[in-house]
Write a protein that binds this DNA or RNA. Structure first.
Length: 478
RNA sequence: GCACCCAUCGUCUAGCCCGGCCUAGGACACUGCCUUUUCACGGCGGCGACUGGGGUUCGAAUCCCCAUGGGUGUACCA
């Protein structure tokens, strides 16, 4: 039997990182098992569903490299893949349940139900449906409908316990009486989530349902429906939940929780996936930095974590940095050019210079957006207010260095040099050491202070040859 | 309220199923030292956890029970 898994988002907002993680797990499992990964759009909530969200979610999935084998945009033999287009299927399957006596029409009004719920709650009883319409005869139903009354279709919840084996949770038992008769098809004819999911998973031949723990209680209702249809349920794997620092389910107020935001912030999709993968699953080799797409058969359902995981952007940043550091310089340059402001002098430099620059600075960033402040040491004319810098500036040796360097730089410029070389820099320090008799901290810190007006920064032998000579000249006179 | 799920360093986790190799391992963060000043990288260290209580056992992070804490669900949302 070939494995068929699915990711079934609701187009009611942008792709959430939790959803991205679920999609990835399904995708990875299909890849590992040589199966198919299906994308299904669950837009039965007509109030909140919007096509633009479906489009953006598919786009974000694509950005992440999570590509589906079947879906609304690519088709497939089990379509349609949008629940809003599967009405006839739900209707037919609903009839089956009605005919078999597993479901019935219910005419109770919302007001009636709300009132009963309140009473039940007040009496500390479970607010389950009382089964008022459960035994209405066919004739009564027909005549009330003819009279214009609208009905929902309710499922007759069997009074018995249910159990199943979850790949993550193990043996899960739902005792008898956890749910009352629940609605499967609304008054407007649109099916309710738990019903639509079962019909879709059954007709799409889904073999494994991999989703987050929040769906665990839903499994009971779904199991009931599978049973009523006489269909063997798929296998389930309920992974952990993604939560915020306050231990609540991750939501917008926890900051950047949608994938498109990470795209905008120029994160590497491979890094986001890598980090998300680690939140609730662990690599067999216990490594932290890897390419999820090369996981292959290493990915399995046995290494999921049961406990909820707190989303921590600091570690994501670290992983993003690790991925950047492994990228070819050329690629880094391409990305970085997108984030450095258009008016930045960086863009005026030639290709060779940019490549040299990236070879050095690639190692120093975790995010592409950090590059601009990093390369400031090459162009900035700012004078540090740092105490260490002020100290270095006050040494009696420092003005001597400045005086000497002023001449050297003027000469280099007069000779037509656009940049000084590492060799020049070496000669300078040799001179300062030999002729000016300045060494150790006074030498290095002094040269740094004069040349950059900072107390700290990357190695001078890397940054000075990259600093335009006019900048050096201006700094000398600051 | 009721039901279900969960519980190892601040965080992500390994170990748990098949008790001893665990004076609990790794990673992020924080931090010390080293690498002919600094910073970064790297290397070597440090800090830092089995929620509590019972039980089973020669022996428990690992098995059982209870308590506590947290989470999710309880919709004509998904």
């Amino acid at each position: 039997m070939t494995v068929r898994v699915r990711f079934a988002p609701s187009p009611t907002g942008y792709l959430h990182i939790g959803g991205a993680r679920t999609a990835m797990y399904n995708y990875l499992y299909a890849k590992a098992m040589g199966g198919k990964y299906i994308l299904r759009i669950e837009d039965t909530d007509t109030e909140r569903s919007e096509r633009k969200f479906e489009i953006s979610q598919i786009e974000d999935l694509k950005w992440l490299g999570i590509t589906h084998d079947e879906g609304p945009d690519v088709g497939g033999e089990f379509g349609p893949y949008r629940q809003s287009e599967r009405g006839h299927i739900y209707k037919a399957w609903g009839e089956k349940l009605l005919d078999a006596g597993h479901a019935y029409h219910c005419f109770c009004t919302e007001a009636e139900l709300t009132l009963k719920n309140e009473i039940a709650l007040a009496e500390k009883r479970d607010p389950q449906y009382d089964g008022k319409c459960r035994d209405l005869s066919k004739e009564v139903v027909a005549s009330r409908q003819a009279a214009g009354e609208v009905a929902v279709i309710r499922f007759k919840a069997p009074k018995k316990a249910y159990a199943f084996n979850d790949h993550v949770r193990g043996h899960v038992v739902f005792p008898e009486g956890m749910v009352g008769d629940f609605v499967i098809i609304r008054a407007n004819g649109i099916p309710v989530y738990n019903f639509a999911v079962v019909v879709d998973d059954a007709t799409m031949k889904i073999t494994h349902v991999i989703r987050a723990e929040e769906h665990l209680p839903n499994t009971l209702r779904q199991l009931m429906i599978y049973e009523a249809f006489g269909v063997t349920p798929p296998e389930f794997a309920h992974g952990s939940l993604l939560i915020g620092e306050d231990r609540q389910k991750l939501s917008k107020r926890h900051g950047a929780t949608s994938v498109n935001l990470y795209k905008e912030m120029h994160y590497l999709p491979a890094a986001l996936l890598n980090y998300l993968c680690l939140l609730g699953w662990s690599h067999p080799d216990e490594t932290d930095v890897f390419d999820v797409h090369s996981l292959g058969i290493m990915f399995n359902l046995e290494r999921f974590t049961k406990a909820s995981a707190i989303y921590d952007i600091i570690k994501l940043n670290f992983i993003n940095g690790q991925h950047i550091h492994k990228l070819p310089v050329e690629t880094v340059l391409g990305e970085v050019e997108k984030v450095i402001p258009a008016e930045h002098p960086f863009h005026k430099m030639d290709h060779a210079w940019k490549m040299n620059c990236m070879t050095i600075f690639r190692e120093k960033i975790n995010l592409f957006t950090e590059i601009t402040s990093q390369i400031d040491v090459l162009f900035s004319l700012e004078v540090s207010a740092d105490a260490e810098y002020i100290d270095a500036k006050s040494w009696e040796t420092t003005p001597k260095i400045r005086e000497y360097l002023e001449i050297e730089i003027a000469n280099a410029k007069a000779a037509g040099k656009k940049f000084v070389t590492e060799e020049d820099l070496n000669n300078w320090s040799t001179h300062v050491k030999g002729e000016l008799k300045i060494k150790g901290k006074q030498l290095f810190m002094g040269m740094r202070a004069v040349l950059t007006h900072q107390a700290h920064g990357p190695d001078l032998k890397f940054i000075i040859p990259l600093t335009p000579i006019e900048i050096l000249e201006k700094r000398i006179h600051l």
